[in-house]
């Protein structure tokens, strides 16, 4: 475990093997095995990025951590998780908002009964979503919809946050703005984060720690602490140096675009 994970583990993930019955599933590894011998723990309040090429099984691993996929060999332990309650705040590759509910109702949908509804609505205000709280999601731009999805994940005040390429297919400036917003919220609320991406630059911008997932079936190839100071700049000097160093040591590290 890295230095940043000094606190107690918020999540312990052990996946000895994950296979898909129909070999056509993601990964398509031998015998349908997608993930093998993966073990890691995320420290309390740690921002952990899971990095790997597209289709290597990142989303599969995230679904296992979220409790959406229970068909695997291994165990996910989340101390303090309560049965019947969300294990984590989740943000998916697409916003997955309910189009027939207004922005505010989309948040209300996921609130546990004892949650403070006003706090959730105040969160909307803080995220500059106040003016659209009674608007239906399909009247919002893609960037705004992602923002609402992020608000929904934070609305349940999660101790664990799971994000699956939440800013993919957004234009650069919008994605940068949302990354900034995510980091601000994370610093305020301090949930433990598992953030999936295939973009090395994004990982360097966000992570306390990067887990490289690779191979077929996928395993953890590298577990790297990132101790660059925050706030970090896209294309900043230290960031760029780390990127070059990583690419030199680890040429398979996926880096689609050059900052």
């Amino acid at each position: 475990m890295s230095a940043a994970a000094a606190g107690a583990a918020a999540v312990t993930v052990v996946v000895r093997r994950k296979r898909f019955a129909n070999a056509g599933g993601p990964g398509g590894g031998r015998g349908g095995v997608v993930l093998e011998r993966i073990e890691f723990a995320i420290g309390s309040g740690e921002f952990c990025v899971l990095l790997g090429p597209s289709g290597c099984g990142k989303t599969t691993l995230l679904n296992i951590v979220a409790g959406l996929d229970r068909d695997f060999e291994g165990a996910v332990r989340i101390p303090g998780a309560v049965a019947g309650r969300a294990r984590a705040g989740c943000v998916f590759q697409t916003p997955r908002l309910l189009p027939w509910l207004t922005v505010a109702d989309n948040l209300r949908l996921v609130l546990p009964p004892e949650a403070d509804e006003r706090a959730a609505l105040a969160l909307l205000e803080a995220m500059e979503l106040g003016p659209v709280r009674d608007t239906y999601p399909n009247r919002l731009s893609g960037g705004m919809q992602r923002r609402v999805a992020l608000a929904r994940a934070f609305a349940i005040r999660p101790s664990l946050l799971l994000l699956d390429e939440p800013f993919v297919s957004l234009d650069g400036p919008t994605a940068d703005r949302l990354r900034g917003l995510l980091v601000d919220l994370w610093r305020r609320e301090r949930p433990s984060v598992l953030f999936v991406t295939h973009d090395l630059n994004e990982a360097i911008l966000l992570a306390d720690r990067i887990l490289f997932l690779g191979g077929t079936p996928a395993r953890l190839a590298l577990d790297l602490a990132v101790d660059l100071p925050r706030p970090r700049q896209p294309g900043g000097v230290a960031e760029e140096a780390l990127r070059r160093r990583l690419l030199a040591h680890y040429p398979d590290a996926p880096a689609e675009r050059v900052a």
């Binding site: 679904n63 959406l68 294990r87 705040g89 998916f92 997955r96 949908l109 996921v110």
Partner: peptide, 11 residues
Amino acid sequence: DLMAMAEAFAV
């Protein structure tokens, strides 16, 4: 996807 979202949030 929507059903999975609802499950993840334990609605």
